[in-house]
Write a protein that binds this DNA or RNA. Structure first.
Lengths: 205, 205
DNA sequence: AAAATTATTAATCATTTGACTAAATTTAGG
DNA sequence: CCTAAATTTAGTCAAATGATTAATAATTTT
């Protein structure tokens, strides 16, 4: 693999391709994306894409990995911080995710689509299973909701309340007659609403 | 356009293709689907697909329309039934959708993806905007939540709590360590949980 | 500055894929 | 049965597309 020393130019070109690839892939998915689209969006010659990344698939895998990373980083620091109460964790999680999703609204649909298309790739990969179930967060949740309700319901609800609005963004703006600015404002409101709702769910069952 | 009189056969072949097309399209999306896949899944010759449906695009549009129809029918009868209380409407909506989604878990991702890809096609189409905002349901919601909270928040939450688990099905089964059967059982539990939660949201703001 | 390495381009290739054609086979009505 | 319409098939085509190549330009190294 070639690594250049003339960093100024190469990093810029490679980065240009990656940026364009993230944009086009995330918007259209793997199959609907043509390498020519990416090349054009990046303002480079088609052959350069293969020069730097070997193949469409390799480039896609790279982007996908970085996207998944975005998702994980937004949780990581919250779920296992033992100094935070359950409510504080929920609040931080919701706040962090909504901020991230405001910047990357296409991300959830992109990732979930990909999981559906290739479940096997994600089955083990992150070992998210164990990490999640053993997290301080999940233990707190079990303790707080003990007996009244399956804590998985709470987790699913928290994720749904936070992520779903972005997945269905355009659809919701359509049926509810609000525009982009109003939508973003509402998402900010949800930073306070969701933790309150989740707290109620835990207590009320 | 040829219409046969030997109805037995034609309906069966045409239906076979449509069933196969729905399956493959919904699983893989438009671009990733090859007409040859559909033909194979339907157990028919490739040319037959074009014989009955003219083109891949036409077939896709048909399937998409039917899928959207599924979504709408599940709401239609509930939203404007003036004899139902708000809580009854929510309960019926959630019940109906969860049942529909258990049978068609790929539907939401498929439709939302398509809306993202071609927003213009859905912008006016259903005029869902007006229909929804003028529904008896929405008016009841406004009355019940008056002042405390934007009713759109409630709608978004209700949809999210109901639909999101199916969109993220595989992902959730992964991180929460539950299998398909447990998942379906949980979805049944949510038929009772979600209306209760929504009621709390409305009252508490 | 010469040589070597790295970056970029235009042109081309090979494969995939949606669509079409023309012929063969089956079915329905007389 | 016979004929015409309906159905089905194999074979083919043209466009799209991922990838490669060979030549050229730019940059770095010696």
């Amino acid at each position: 693999m070639r690594r250049s020393k003339t960093n100024g130019t190469i990093a810029s070109t490679e980065e240009k391709i990656k940026l364009a690839a993230r944009k086009v892939f995330t918007e259209k998915g793997f199959a609907a994306t043509r390498t020519r689209d990416i090349a054009e969006a990046a303002g480079i010659n088609l052959a350069l894409l293969n020069y730097y990344f070997r193949s469409k698939q390799k480039l896609f895998d790279l982007i996908m990995m970085e996207n998944v990373q975005l998702f994980i980083e937004a949780i990581k620091n919250v779920l296992d911080n033992e100094r935070l109460t359950l409510n504080e964790k929920v609040a931080l999680f919701v706040e962090g995710y909504i901020e991230m999703l405001k910047k990357n609204p296409d991300l959830p649909l992109f990732i979930l689509q990909e999981i559906r298309r290739h479940p096997e790739k994600f089955a083990n990969q992150l070992a998210a299973k164990e990490i999640f179930l053993k997290s301080h967060f999940f233990k707190q949740l079990q303790a707080a909701s003990k007996g009244r309700i399956n804590p998985v319901h709470i987790v699913v609800s928290m994720l749904g309340l936070t992520i779903f609005p972005f997945i269905a963004g355009l659809f919701l703006q359509n049926i509810t007659n609000i525009n982009q600015v109003q939508f973003d404002k509402m998402m900010d409101e949800r930073k306070k609403l969701i933790p309150k709702w989740v707290d109620t769910m835990i207590k009320a069952g």
